[in-house]
């Protein structure tokens, strides 16, 4: 495992921890898109079906279980927790996320590494992950005051994506037969979606003012 991959996994892990911290200690999910969290729960459920068929490493298995468990519990908290669910910005979080799933499924049926159930689900999870952040970015644009934890959550997620791109470049040049076009293209699309947000995030950080996105 190279340093980019490890750093990518760790920033991904931290992003989830930041979100759980916000939910557990502050008992608030203000500014967090349930739509995006539901998409992530679906992304990890469909991608990690190979938990039952392929053993890669203890690290791999534990991380998969963490991402599965955390994404499902975040959705549960936002939907059902007596206190947390009251802070959910339901009226602002209106992105019709189910509409993203059908094109992703069709694309996965057409473009996959092999036409098997696991491979189609794997491709579907990558296409869906690429666009899963969209409801969150839309919610951020609508929410006037973005708290630090929400900003840090998205920042960490973006860092995770960028580090994975560096990891692919590194692996391409150091490993033989390391080619994953579906992962790369959908990963780059996903990373580009964050670029716009980061532009405003760093501007506000540079000027030391609260993050405010244009309408």
């Amino acid at each position: 495992m190279n340093i980019f991959r490890l750093a990518g996994d760790m920033t991904h892990l931290f992003s989830v921890l930041v979100l759980l911290l916000k939910i557990h200690t502050i008992k608030s999910c203000a500014g967090i898109s349930l739509k995006t969290q539901e998409l992530y729960a679906i992304v990890f459920t469909t991608r990690y079906l190979d938990l039952f068929t392929t053993y890669i490493s203890l690290y791999n298995t534990i991380m998969k279980l963490i991402f599965l468990g955390s994404s499902i519990s975040i959705v549960w908290y936002m939907r059902h927790h007596k206190v947390v669910r009251r802070s959910y910005d339901k009226d602002q979080d209106t992105f019709r996320h189910y509409l993203l799933m059908l094109p992703c499924l069709l694309l996965a049926l057409l473009i996959n590494e092999k036409f098997t159930f696991l491979e189609v689900m794997w491709a579907f999870s990558l296409y869906l992950e690429a666009v899963a952040i969209l409801p969150q970015l839309v919610l951020l644009q609508r929410t006037r005051n973005i708290d630090n934890l929400t900003g840090q959550y998205v920042l960490l997620l973006g860092a995770y994506r960028a580090l994975y791109v560096l990891n692919w470049i590194y692996r391409y040049f150091t490993e033989e037969n390391y080619v994953h076009w579906i992962t790369w293209v959908s990963g780059i699309v996903q990373t580009l979606l964050y670029a716009d947000f980061f532009y405003y995030y760093f501007q506000s950080w540079k000027n030391n003012v609260k993050l405010q996105l244009p309408a």
């Binding site: 991959r5 996994d9 991904h12 190979d50 392929t54 890669i56 490493s57 791999n60 991380m63 998969k64 991402f67 590494e113 794997w122 994975y164 990891n167 490993e175 037969n177 390391y178 080619v179 994953h180 076009w181 992962t183």
Partner: peptide, 10 residues
């Protein structure tokens, strides 16, 4: 090139 097939990334 062919894919290695092993999906060890998260």
């Amino acid at each position: 090139a062919e894919s290695s097939g092993l999906k060890d990334e998260l």
